[in-house]
Design a protein around this nucleic acid. Structure first.
Lengths: 250, 250
DNA sequence: CCTCGCTATGTTAAAAAATAACATATTTTA
DNA sequence: TAAAATATGTTATTTTTTAACATAGCGAGG
């Protein structure tokens, strides 16, 4: 990336948005050149091209995209949740499905207290009636979550009515897994401080145990998943008194 | 906002972006109608119009805009900072100028440990070589900062080489002020756990004390400001052994 | 029950912006 | 230094956006 492009990015960040015509004049080059610069910045994920110019690229924060499957699960969870008006405090662990749920929650703007270790979730609930408490901790390298001993120390002082969490792998006899060691330790503690635990996960996560188990079956209250869950898994989980909610695909 | 517009917003959030042609077909209305819906969403700050469609609006997170004055101060600070290679840990308090500094720091991507209570700052330093530690705490209503007893408890365990902070008001005899009571309490503690304190602030903040003092003059090491600082203030501060760095306006 | 005024939507023409293709200049590299 | 690669400018074409006007639906008041 050349100097002009570097500086253009700075200007986009500084001003919040730039216009192609202005920048062409500022740098004394043709509009086409600025256009090409913007396309390059967009390729590198440093800016977003809008009508007459460009704006800064939002990092994962708000822009983490969800899938129809995740939305369906989140919607089913919300429906269930609305039948629990007594719940006042909940905890949302970092994850795509829990983020989808947080976005739905933001639309309702209920007066809840939400504890989370996910910046995207905190961001989604920003400026709603929810009181948002973010655990402290170290920012993970690839997702905007907070983990580490500090986050856990923080958690130890809390108690919540409900925990909503996803998983990276699941097994109908063994329990629920995550692929990150730090995260697993954090999740284990989350389960401990919560009265009831809801797992929100796509059925595809079943039959693939990943690295570390963070919850055994008897710690789980409800599983919310899509219609792809195999009958045998359904049977096994029910036998362990786990309630299964199946989201109807959209 | 009607049902279609509400649902359109959901779809924008869910998919990360939508195309006008697709949505016109999906809702069985003309493209013009979708266009009008998008400009309405944009007016309400719920989405951003891009070339062939729309994307979700990033909340304050990344998009907090900076001014040339703030950038100039941040640039001066960076220059100073680069002459201190021995510094390994620093703390950045929430604020516009400190955010501008964090953005410059992100470009250098130095192997530092940064402690902050600001989500925008954490976000700016995400995926750089900086190790970012976010204090826990309650999300403030109007800016993406973390404050409250939890944040302070968190802070109490730390020690850093340098603190960078802004202020809402300053006085060359009395010290530095902020307008928020919770924030002041947090800032006081920040000053305590830092070896050296740098104040980054526009000269316009002088001669207007705001509500609560968080630092007295003898606690401050260096003031970085623009060329608008009055000679009398400059004199006063120097007499208290405060080093003054003047950013050249851009 | 009608008509006025309001709003939402659709249609079309004009304007603006983005793209693609090619020409020219500039830098790299062998 | 010449050839190749890269960067920039110019123009024509296509796409997207805007603006202006037409139409349809709907409720309030007569």
């Amino acid at each position: 990336m050349n100097l002009r492009q570097q500086e253009l990015k700075n200007r986009i960040d500084a001003f919040g948005h730039i216009e192609i015509a202005d920048e062409a004049q500022f740098f004394a080059v043709s509009e086409m050149t600025i256009r090409r610069d913007i396309v390059l910045l967009e390729k590198n994920g440093l800016a977003v091209q809008v009508k007459g110019g460009a704006i800064p690229k939002a990092k994962i924060c708000e822009s983490m995209s969800s899938s129809p499957a995740k939305n369906a699960i989140a919607a089913a969870m919300l429906q269930l949740f609305e039948q629990m008006p007594e719940v006042k405090t909940l905890m949302l662990s970092a994850g795509g499905t829990t983020l989808a749920f947080a976005r739905l929650l933001a639309q309702r703007s209920l007066p809840l207290t939400v504890l989370t270790n996910s910046i995207p979730i905190a961001s989604a609930l920003f400026q709603t009636r929810c009181k948002v408490i973010l655990t402290g901790g170290e920012l993970r390298a690839n997702s905007m979550d907070l983990v580490g001993p500090a986050a856990e120390k923080y958690l130890a002082d809390y108690h919540v009515d409900l925990l909503f969490t996803g998983c990276d792998g699941a097994d109908s006899q063994e329990g629920f897994y995550t692929s990150d060691l730090n995260l697993a330790s954090y999740e284990k503690l989350s389960v401990k401080i919560s009265d009831r635990v809801f797992i929100l996960t796509e059925s595809a996560k079943f039959r693939s145990k990943s690295m570390v188990r963070f919850a055994e079956l008897d710690e789980i209250d409800t599983l919310v998943t899509d219609s792809g869950l195999k009958a045998i898994d359904r049977e096994m989980l029910s036998r362990q008194n786990i309630r299964i909610i199946t989201a109807k695909s959209q």
